[in-house]
Design a binder for these strands. Structure first.
Length: 566
RNA sequence: UGGGGCGUAGCCAAAUGGCAAGGCAGCGGCCUUUGGAGCCGCCAUCUGGAGGUUCGAGUCCUCCCGCCCCAGCCA
């Protein structure tokens, strides 16, 4: 205790921050999340948001949301709106500090003139292709542009005329004058401004030259007084360039720290690939419940709490990783287990007729809403002579360890009665269409005075009370875990999972589910967690998305039996 | 073959020269009116490899191997 910094268990970034605080390098922590509005946010961005906002909160500091909107040809207002919504939904609070890099265009322009005056930047007439040729390769140094030694006066004049719109797109660029032989490619006279006669979503037609990301990012952080600029690994070798700009300008210097971006198995996390999925119609949109976007996860039924939990569990480091999607699923199960109300829904109904139950009798039985939370209370569920059970809960010739309904076996209908299978009715194709049972009136509520045990408990829906609902079952978007390392000639689109969506249009739900609102979440007993989809309003019937299944021990046993030749 | 990073269990990830945390997955068992949840136990004689320094090395040194990123007027 005392002067030792306790770093145990903290990620390396927090350890650095602890050190900076202790040494007095910084007094208050200030972080930011700097998205480019050219697509929807995904779970990888959530990692960054949780890191940046989490740190600001833990250290009593501040957190900014800033759009890095330096490229009007890719960016749209729709994206800034969705991003704002998603960051807010995740619970990160930027208070009154919502900024745009485009807010700094004028300042950036002035700074550019400053560099020109110092002889550290020049207007270059080389075309894009020529710049590439002059840049050299990874192993050979580049050559200096023939325009590199223009006078300050000429550069200033040309740059001002670039701004004034005298030149067409691509005719000229403003470049930093650094070192064409630098082993770090980023230092080989990088482009600071390009001519782009394009309308910007915020500045409109005010500008026809736009600053590059490299020329914008570090200074934006500097302007905002960001103490720790957290970004992903690919910007590590841009850091010397940012340092160079900041030093030439003589302005406040934030500390950049890089961490590894998130990868998750069986999905892709790159805006380019996600855009492709959207544009090719493989998914219904950025918020398709199969998408790893924040909007998709939200529609799928994920909660901000589960996403935060996930981001905390995966940790932060500099090692490339591929996190098992099972961990994400664990997090949402863990959260929903505690808070989701239980309901009964039968996906693929099989009729059960209880022969010794009175024809027109209906009983309303008590059912616990959530065994994990007594305060969730109870509800009434109807029971009658004819009920539906899950087709998979009956087998005429069951394998070993099958505890569900089969001829002669007694099972419990959850919250209701014990029933015993007495007969099976089949159609001409030999398919079971109806099962006959008898019930034990003594077992009302699910237990008997004699205390005898039944191994199986089934969910059910009373036939005459069942409410038709649509249920959408999702699986992973891709069939292989690692989409970053595919065989020669294969593309990630070659591994799309044809069964990533299965729609069940005629499931039957208990009556309490007849009136639900989009976003509401439930556990359907023995099936999984489900979330009411927004289509509920347009389709005029309840539509549920399966967020995640329950853990399925029986499926595991089946797999084992199969493997052992059972 | 230039530069910048990274290698700890099936997957993440701690460790800061003192006897390899934790989580997910997996495997046993208990319990159960959800084959859910919960509970208990097991799961690295070993840190990419080889040498070296040290009483002591995942941590320090040397060499080697492997993987990722950089040649946009994208971010």
């Amino acid at each position: 205790m005392s002067e030792e910094v306790d770093r145990t268990g903290k990620d390396f970034i927090r350890q650095i921050i602890d050190g900076d605080l202790k040494s007095g390098k910084v007094k208050k922590i200030h972080t930011r999340f700097p998205p480019e509005p050219n697509g929807y946010l995904h779970i990888g961005h959530a990692k960054s948001i949780c890191l940046n906002y989490g740190i600001a909160k833990e250290y009593g500091g501040k957190f900014n949301l800033r759009f890095d909107d330096t490229n009007p040809s890719k960016e749209e207002a729709e994206y800034v709106e969705s991003i704002i919504e998603d960051v807010r939904w995740l619970g990160a609070d930027w208070e009154d500090r919502l900024f745009y890099a485009s807010d700094y265009f004028e300042q950036l322009y002035e700074w550019a003139e400053q560099l020109i005056k110092k002889g550290k930047a020049y207007v270059c007439d080389l075309s894009a292709e020529e710049i590439r040729e002059y840049r050299g390769t990874l192993t050979e140094p580049g050559r200096e542009s023939p325009y590199r030694n223009r006078s300050v006066e000429e550069n200033l004049d040309l740059f001002r005329r670039m701004r004034a719109g005298e030149f067409p797109d691509g005719a000229k660029t403003l470049r930093a004058k650094i070192d064409m032989a630098a082993p770090n490619m980023n230092m080989r006279d990088p482009v600071m401004y390009r001519i782009l006669h394009r309308k910007h979503h915020r500045t409109g037609n005010k500008w026809c030259i736009y600053p590059s990301y490299d020329w914008t990012h570090g200074q934006s952080d500097s302007i905002e007084g960001i103490t720790h600029s957290l970004c992903t690994l690919e910007f590590e070798d841009h850091r010397p360039l940012y340092d160079w700009f900041l030093e030439q300008l003589g302005i406040y210097h934030p500390q950049q720290i890089e961490f590894a971006r998130l990868n998750i198995s069986h999905t892709v996390l790159s805006k380019r690939k996600l855009l492709q999925l959207v544009e090719t119609g493989v998914v219904s949109g950025w918020d398709d419940p199969r998408m790893p976007t924040i909007a998709g996860l939200r529609r799928r039924g994920y909660t901000p709490e589960a996403i935060w939990d996930f981001c905390e569990r995966i940790g932060v480091s500099k090692a490339d990783s591929l996190v098992d999607i099972g961990l994400l699923e664990h997090c949402i199960r863990d959260d929903l287990n505690r808070r989701a109300l239980r309901r009964m829904v039968v996906l693929r109904p099989l009729k059960v007729i209880i022969d010794n139950y009175p024809d027109d009798k209906v009983e309303w039985l008590d059912a616990v809403n959530n065994p994990e939370d007594e305060s969730a209370g109870t509800r009434k569920i109807p029971f009658s002579k004819e009920v539906f059970i899950e087709r998979s809960d009956f087998m005429e010739n069951p394998p070993k360890k099958y505890f569900r309904l089969y001829p002669g076996n007694e099972v419990r209908l959850k919250h209701a009665y014990y029933i015993t299978c007495t007969d099976v009715v089949k159609n001409e194709r030999g398919e079971v269409v109806e099962v006959h049972c008898t019930y034990d009136p003594e077992s009302r509520g699910g237990g008997t005075p004699d205390g005898r045990r039944v191994r199986g408990t089934l969910h059910f829906v009373s036939a005459k009370h069942g409410v038709p609902v649509e249920v959408r079952l999702y699986d992973t978007l891709f069939t292989v875990p690692d989409l970053s390392n595919l065989p020669e000639g294969k593309d990630f689109m070659d591994y799309l999972n044809p069964n990533s969506l299965e729609v069940i249009e005629n499931a039957l739900a208990e009556p309490s589910l007849s009136n639900v609102k989009p976003g509401e979440k439930f556990q359907f007993l023995r099936l999984g967690y489900f979330c009411v989809d927004k289509d509920t309003e347009t389709l005029k019937k309840p539509v549920f998305n399966r967020t995640v299944t329950l853990k399925d021990t029986w499926a595991k046993i089946q797999r084992k039996l199969k493997k052992n030749g059972g």
